[in-house]
Amino acid sequence: MKSEFTSPIGKISNMNGQCISLIGNDIDTDRIIPARFLKCVNFDSLGESVFEDDRKTLKGKHPFDLEENKNASILVVNSNFGCGSSREHAPQALMRWGIQAIIGESFADIFYSNCIAIGIPCFTLPKKSIEEMQNYCDNQFLFLEIDLKKSLAKSKELNFNLEIKESSRKMFLSGEWDATSTLLENENLIEKKFNLLPYVKFNTKLS
């Protein structure tokens, strides 16, 4: 757990850091943050509880408990990471632990949107490249410099052409991943759309 947490703001284009590998397919958001930790009205204390049950089961041997990973900020995962519940608490917990970017074979849809919405870029790579990264992490430190403009990740020995949805890439580079203000710019269009919806006219209003 890192000491000071500050939420990302504005444009995001470069991420440099140490990788932490977490092996497994279909790792769901209940595992990332068990439901009992959702009893909160803010996200502040979630970082320490990330993967709580998995970590307890592995008694200190979970990647998130290893001394050599304590400064890691780029998470490397396998397929369908973040499946299950829509709880944003999951990426919030990862972010508060120190994760700033995730590279994986694939991500569940809602988890992916949540990551984008809070400023965590999620990149994909083919299974083979992920395994190469994870094997490397097993034996030595892997430090990556990620350039979002070029969708490139570089280390001393390895280079990877990362894939990311074009809309997400643009949103990070422009800072529009924090969507509220962008959406509000179209206030007139929103009103117009609302007035055109058929069901607005025939619905029984809740009083």
């Binding site: 829509s86 709880r87 944003e88 608490h89 990426p91 809602i110 949107s113 949540n114 919405a117 809070i118 949805k165 809309s167 949103m171 969507a179 509220t180 962008t182 959406l183 509000l184 179209n186 206030e187 929103i190 609302f194």
Partner: peptide
């Protein structure tokens, strides 16, 4: 389903940015 930041967006704008 949506996450909390998107709940915020719907509350504030009644819209979402989606692919």
């Amino acid at each position: 389903g949506i996450g909390t930041s998107q709940v915020r967006d719907v509350l504030a704008t009644q819209t979402l940015a989606m692919n």
